[in-house]
Computed example of a mutant assay.
Amino acid sequence: MARRISVAQRRSDFINAAVEVIATHGIDGATTRRIAEQAQANLAMLHYCYDSKDDLFADVYAFVSGRFRDVVKAIDPRSDLRDTACQLLRGVMECYLESASFTAATIELISWARRQHGGRGIAVYDQALETVRDVLREASSDDPVEAETIDQIAYVIASLADGFAVNWFTYGDRDAAARHMDITASVLDSWLAVRLGCAPVAP
């Protein structure tokens, strides 16, 4: 007797399949038929789980955001501002390195949202930056720093993470990307040492 798969599990399957299809074919090529085939399900099941393609893509956005929230949750709450910033950057880079498809789909989703919906693409990025700023503010609560400093740290983290993602996406060399993670992390640490007036951490 075949095991019955729950709707929740099927939705998870379709979300993961959509990430793979978006990474390979882009948003425009991510048809419901391709997504269903990638999930090894029939098209009727996809339409049973989702009323529309937009509903599915909304869950894909939520999935991507959730991955980044997981990075935030993994940060040691006892960390100071500098260590928190370094953990954020490394966590995001590890999230990208874990899956080339996730990296490609994330870049495509933000680019597509910016092209098609303007403000929505900006809002997705703004939300991610605000999450980073919130974590940095919390980490500096015992030794507060200026809001401008928090903004600068968040910007540098985002710029370094984005640069890493584009490089990994472009070349697809996992060994090189792993080495680049250490280089990128050292760039942030050196910049923080200057900005916060402390000695850089020895490699």
Rank of each mutant, 00 (worst) to 15 (best):
V145W: 01
L160C: 12
A17G: 15
I150S: 02
T184W: 04
E146H: 12
A147I: 06
E108Y: 00
G26Q: 00
E108Q: 08
T24H: 11
S140V: 08
T184G: 05
A44F: 03
G163T: 08
R195H: 11
S141P: 03
E98K: 13
D54I: 10
A85E: 11
A2P: 15
R82C: 02
R69N: 15
I157L: 03
P144E: 08
D151S: 14
R90N: 06
A85K: 02
M1V: 12
Y61V: 13
I157P: 08
L43E: 10
A39M: 02
I35N: 05
T184Y: 07
D51G: 15
E148Q: 14
G163Y: 00
S52G: 07
I157K: 06
T184N: 06
T170Y: 07
H117F: 13
R133G: 10
G91C: 03
A85H: 01
S12V: 02
Y96A: 12
I5Y: 01
V124T: 12
A85G: 09
Q38P: 03
E37T: 14
H117K: 10
R69D: 15
Q40M: 11
A161C: 05
D162M: 12
W168I: 07
A193E: 05
A18C: 11
R67H: 11
L160Y: 03
A165C: 07
R33G: 12
D142W: 06
Q116I: 00
Y96H: 14
A178N: 12
N42S: 09
L46N: 04
Y50H: 08
H117T: 04
E98R: 11
V72E: 14
I5G: 06
D28K: 12
E108K: 00
D173P: 02
T103H: 00
N42L: 02
I153W: 06
K73A: 15
R34W: 01
F164Q: 05
G197D: 09
M93K: 09
F102H: 11
R3T: 14
L160S: 03
M1F: 07
A139V: 06
M181V: 14
G119L: 13
S159T: 13
F102D: 03
M93E: 00
L109G: 02
Q40F: 00
E98S: 14
D83N: 11
L89R: 03
V60E: 07
K53C: 07
F57N: 09
R174I: 14
Y61F: 08
E108V: 03
